[in-house]
Design a binder for these strands. Structure first.
Lengths: 336, 336
DNA sequence: TTGAAAGCGCTAACAG
DNA sequence: CTGTTAGCGCTTTCAA
């Protein structure tokens, strides 16, 4: 079997306890002992058993991250922020993806709990069933929701302002004279979908333009459904001169459909995405989109979480981050 | 603190042991006891402590996955295959990304070992230092290399045939009359870069065309370096009529540069990628590329790993998967 | 079919 | 500065 503290203790003549403390650099251990013990540990290729250590001590120094959709680079970018702060805090991370399934979300949370994580960062689906809410009400560790909110847990959320972000998109399109706007929404059980749609509605109301429900098309947030939706809208002869997309992936599909149907973007149809993925600047045309501070979102979420782990009685506080419209080639001209 | 077997034992009057076995559906426990115990467990919201369980039993039912580059969707797609098989085998997965750093690779392997994983799936950098090789020689658990190989561990590899895949790309370009081909390679410490370059060289030799070293440009495998490389090649006035890219991300950057420089793809310059990412069909123009069986790669790697965990004395055996050239819009016409 | 006891590897509390 | 003892929650003997 593998090398344990016991082996090092036997090899050096110290007690298991002294070895344990020497390896953790406890200051009450003599330099001589430390040197001997560290040397022997290295020689024997000792690998500390984090499992055993976790059992005995209060903290495992591990955090569970429940992310949403592994096919969307948005979440990789948020993850990087989480990881950066985790590393800073000396934690490591267990990641799992729900693929927007409530069942998988619950399973992941329980999996992480059973592995004794010190806390959780979650991008939840927005299901408001009693069972779902109860899962978080009874959670025995600190937790933060990143980029998405859940009814009754506003304080736990680190968010970006989707309502305003999307409202500005539609305002901008209005200011360019568009009145026929195709709206491609995202997965329905996700709070961002609801918020962005609300932003659309507010912008329409504000401008006094009636919003036809027939111009709202649902997608699952992936390119192929953006592509299909625009194809179908064109086939139906739906009139539109601009498209606002749930996210950049959907926009990528939309651009493809326009191009295949001989419609020039931005000359004939303007397209706006959401998220500002790294790849969006390389799309053709480069995508106008709403920048979300992805890295900072993850970084801040993890930072807050660490605070709550260190100080369990600290009050939770909602954080709202600003978004920013980024103008590229898929829309005409700059801001008016 | 949280609910333990002891709590259920006290509540039901059975011993801890009986509770433990009832919850694991041991057949030597009466149905009556099982029912009572399961009921109580549910009522108390018992969450099994996987950490404690892992300490006592041989297997943790967890697998470490050391992946390479979280910004590249290629690895997400491989991961999905790994996860699918893991779920089938009743394991869960710990994932970490090296970002192509040898140090991070070693740290991740040790992190996973310290968490007592039953085995590892690794996408290693191809560093052949004694230290790196020794890491795997002395690994106390079964391991599989997925999509990349490492000197001396051929048997542990599940691979796709990069030499042949890339050779076919270049052959195809030759067959279209190209002689001036820009070659954008990937990160140097990665076996795929070396293999694909070898494929290029073999195709050139085969065709009797001299390969100018000046037409080989290194990238880190990301879009921005594909973009920059093509920009620079054009600025230098390098003559080329086709580009073969290390991967689809690099190709995305290359397409962007061509478009910005007023060069039409495929009419003036043909472009070929590698990997066949999901998104590549949505690029403009849709990307001709080499399909790699990403899902199956992960799925098979995990399948082999599970076999070796179940049967530690089984001999390792290299698996080589075929690749396939996929023709889309970034090259002209079909295969000759 | 069930229970009692031992121990996985480690850390914390207390002695010295 | 170092050693002794106890025990985290669970599973695996062994005994009944």
């Amino acid at each position: 079997m593998s090398v344990t503290l016991k082996d090092i203790a036997q090899a050096t003549g110290y007690s298991i306890n002294t070895v344990s403390r020497a390896l953790r650099d406890d200051r009450r251990i003599s330099d001589e002992a430390k040197e001997k013990i560290h040397g022997e540990a290295k020689r024997l290729r000792y690998i500390p058993n984090a499992i055993a250590s976790a059992m005995r001590s209060v903290h495992t120094k591990s955090i569970g991250v429940v992310t949403a959709d592994s096919a969307n680079p948005f979440f990789s970018e948020v993850n990087k922020g989480i990881e950066a702060m985790a590393e800073k805090a000396g934690c490591h991370i267990l990641v799992g993806s729900t693929e927007e399934s409530l069942t998988r979300e619950k399973n992941l949370v329980n999996l992480f709990l059973s592995r004794m994580v010190d806390g959780l960062v979650v991008m939840p689906v927005s299901d408001t069933s009693e069972e779902h809410l109860e899962l978080y009400r009874s959670l025995p560790v600190p937790f933060i929701f990143a980029g998405r909110h859940l009814e009754g847990f506003d304080d736990h959320c680190i968010l970006h302002d989707d309502v305003t972000g999307e409202k500005e998109v539609v305002r901008h399109l209005f200011s360019h004279g568009h009145r026929q706007i195709l709206i491609l929404t995202g997965p329905e059980q996700v709070s961002n979908t609801q918020d962005r749609l609300q932003g659309v509605r507010e912008a329409f109301r504000e401008a006094g333009v009636p919003l036809e429900e027939s111009s709202i098309w649902a997608t699952n947030g992936h390119a192929e459904e953006g592509y299909a939706a625009v194809n179908q809208a064109l086939n139906k002869g739906l009139p539109f001169t601009a498209i606002t997309c749930f996210n950049d992936l959907v926009a990528m599909g939309a651009l493809k459909s326009l191009s295949e149907n001989g419609l020039s973007c931005p000359r004939q149809v303007e397209v706006v995405g959401y998220d500002n993925l790294y790849m969006s600047q390389f799309m053709q045309p480069a995508l106008t989109t709403v920048d979300v501070p992805k890295f900072r979102l993850g970084y801040t979420a993890m930072d807050r979480l660490v605070c709550h782990i260190k100080n369990p009685s600290a009050a939770y506080e909602k954080v709202m981050m600003p978004t920013r419209l980024v103008f590229r080639e898929s829309t005409r001209g700059g801001k008016y």
